[in-house]
Design a binder for these strands. Sequence first.
DNA 1: ATGGTCCATCAGTATCACTGATGGACCGGT
DNA 2: ACCGGTCCATCAGTGATACTGATGGACCAT
Lengths: 296, 296
Amino acid sequence: MDPHLLRTFVAVARLGSFSAAARELGYTQSAVSQHIAALEHDLGAPLLGRRPVAPTPVGARLLEHAGPLLLRLDAARADIARLTSAPTDRLAIGATPLGAAELPGALAAVRRAHPGLVVTVRVLGRESVAREVATGALDVGLVDGMAAPTDPLHMGEATPLTSARVTEQPLAVALPAGHPLAGRPGLRLADLTDAQWIDAPDTGIPLAQLRRAVGGDGFRPALRYKGDDVRALVGLAAAGHGLTVLPTPALEGMAGVTAVPVGQPRVVHRTETLHAARTGDTAAELVAALTAAVAG
Amino acid sequence: MDPHLLRTFVAVARLGSFSAAARELGYTQSAVSQHIAALEHDLGAPLLGRRPVAPTPVGARLLEHAGPLLLRLDAARADIARLTSAPTDRLAIGATPLGAAELPGALAAVRRAHPGLVVTVRVLGRESVAREVATGALDVGLVDGMAAPTDPLHMGEATPLTSARVTEQPLAVALPAGHPLAGRPGLRLADLTDAQWIDAPDTGIPLAQLRRAVGGDGFRPALRYKGDDVRALVGLAAAGHGLTVLPTPALEGMAGVTAVPVGQPRVVHRTETLHAARTGDTAAELVAALTAAVAG
DNA sequence: ATGGTCCATCAGTATCACTGATGGACCGGT
DNA sequence: ACCGGTCCATCAGTGATACTGATGGACCAT
């Protein structure tokens, strides 16, 4: 179970092709074939069906382990690298679309204090932010999600990252103007499990989180939105393509939708910073600015 | 950062000696020296001071990563092995000293249903139980600890194990008979931070857990008890060597001590099962018996 | 001084991890 | 049915590597 072999394995499984994985990893196809053969011999079971190339049950199980494992390995590398290399005048920030809303103010303060600082901001999905922060590609992450009041967001837990609360805001369901429920003072999520939903896993609240909060099945997506623009998502909701849950402030002033607060369960929209246990000065300042501005 | 090299590194750090690590790992001393040199070259920083052999700051950081990493790797191996190998008529159980109290009843039911079953029971510390269950050396673990009512025990989290509640019992401080506080109806832990404590990390509640629950420093150990016999620990408390916190039922009928309930903070003694996500039949039955008997 | 222990280094070798070439299986087009 | 194209498996060859065993320098206790 050499990490190299695991890496090729996940690449092959993801791409569904030995040759493509070889191209991506800079090996020959022959080498990839031998990697998989070595892994299968080592574990004593076939991991991939060939033609088409798809994981066997054992392979699927190995994939579940391999992801977190390789992530931890990269995270360890990155952590040590941070510890040994000199601090830079570079600050890479990653944020989910809704999390990014909190950034401008705090970032201004940091840039004022460090005029030469080269700042990069990227907008990504939750898991991507966590992964990139863990591997050191990002210095600070801003992620958002749904949680019980004062509870931390429940991230992947596969890597040891420090997190701190930035904001907690009420949640609302975005209903098309004129929707029968639009007049209600509040809504119970449990009553909406069978409604038409938009799944926007990288923009708003993923339906999986609603499902977990309510504890049922349901929340079947009628439409899947893959972009990360909030306005476009609200536009879809306004046109009646389905419901979506967003923090109330993000829905203010949005045309065509009525925001009805989520009454039950008691949940809030929470934004958190994410950063490595040990981090650079400017990153620490940004986190302090982000958490202080609102928590104070 | 080859796992082999990491393994050698942790062995050298633990033993404080290249030669001893070589002996333990079945390498020559030369190989161990080369392993460490390779790691240090790879990470670009010295990891171990020589003479005496002790981790540098960077090495210490690497150690923090290496432990969980290797554990996860072993856990993955074990999980796949469980998946590919045939079920056996062998059941290995590990329990902390206080957790073991819950075992006999449930185990009897399982052995009655499976007459040929070869059962092994080992008593270990919390972390050891978790580690051995993760790596497949144990099928089922029974661990105990302190937690807020209905909250799960907060284990290492480095590995993905399933846990389920077995019991929750009130906690009491064991005071020597005739102690000034022995007449009290209840005690606040916060008032006892400066008392004389016995630290019995593998038997009762480790002082670190008290410290976390109360949120202060204090709870300095006056005596450290390394055994795993509860009666001996209570004997020490009775003789006035220090205080210790134990579940009330474990203190019933113990001579020489008075059990005074812990009033604040609101915590309970909790026992949980620990097992791999996917496990054998007999292990699943034992867990069911353990959790059903009391939770029902 | 001296013998003992410890770690670093070096040369030598057996193994291993790649590449590049080849072959068989399948697939779609004509 | 044939044929070019793609895909994965296999094999021989080779350059790298991961060990061992021997040696040497540093330190320590006697």
